[in-house]
Design a protein around this nucleic acid. Sequence first.
DNA 1: TATTGTTATACTCTATAACTATA
DNA 2: TATAGTTATAGAGTATAACAATA
Lengths: 179, 179
Amino acid sequence: MPAEPPTGPSKASDSREAGEPEGPRPDFLAALPRITRLSAAVNRGRLVERAAEEAGLGRDRSAVGVLVTLRTADKPLRIGEIADRMQVVGPHITRQVQILEKRGLVRRIPDVHDARARLIEPTDTGTEAANRYLAFVLGWFNDALVDWPRQDRDDLVRLLTRFADDVATRLALLDEEGG
Amino acid sequence: MPAEPPTGPSKASDSREAGEPEGPRPDFLAALPRITRLSAAVNRGRLVERAAEEAGLGRDRSAVGVLVTLRTADKPLRIGEIADRMQVVGPHITRQVQILEKRGLVRRIPDVHDARARLIEPTDTGTEAANRYLAFVLGWFNDALVDWPRQDRDDLVRLLTRFADDVATRLALLDEEGG
DNA sequence: TATTGTTATACTCTATAACTATA
DNA sequence: TATAGTTATAGAGTATAACAATA
């Protein structure tokens, strides 16, 4: 006895196994596979790879992620904070930072307030590379939206940012509760 | 000489290394780290894990992804098409399908038009599990948006879906060109 | 005693190469 | 000869456990 499909595509009914109280929800079900695919294509496909090339960075996605995190932060970050922002565990960051350091893209500076910690910041070379990387990626996305009405573009970025923040907050709760 | 930051946060100027012709672009730069973090948190954090538990699925993210792909498709899929939809290579899918088959969640049926191919479809058990999984995930996201104005929710899903499609199309071009 | 980070190790996810069967 | 899939192998990405240094 197969269960009913959950809020199927082009089907506004609800079989609310998750206990949702009301109303036709937006069609997330149709969006979900697209978003999943998009995420996979961006991350594993040639966009990130190409951007890294343009930036003169090796094809070490993980390390590039750390570098971009540092570049988009407004101050040097501790290992633990990088890990938190990237949602990975500490030892992973330690290794990526070591790689970046060997390539001269980041450096460690002492944390005057805590001798256990080190602060990581991009070198000039690292900042330049991160800038080239970001310019490529952002430019590419911007091109993808070039034919969109201005209002839609603004709405997308605004809503997406808010969505990411709201969901991140709820996810943190879920992690505490289960942790 | 560090390069200028690319379209910095709260900074509408442009240093358009990617050759963009005009105008203040929406603030993707601020959105990017959030989205990256969100994606990592959803995929590696407890949401997917919990949803898989609720559904009675093992904690085999990759296989779950295949099952969901099959469940959200409207017909049995060939190995190659699953791989394409998930943006991974064939052999990976072969293995995940074998795992799912052993657990009785999917089955292979012959393709009458091509004896080389097999069509994969969920069993009743697999469909039920996928439904529970999706109900949990969709319900969770829905909860996250419960306080949003109706208009914003609808706009988000609409714009995000369109965005995913547009970007997927452009990414396919990028892959051909570089491939 | 708790916290920050590192080292060592292992597991999951995904890719590439070589092969089989059918078209 | 080209295509769909499988098997075998290797690599990237990330986690867990045990440890060191400082708080």
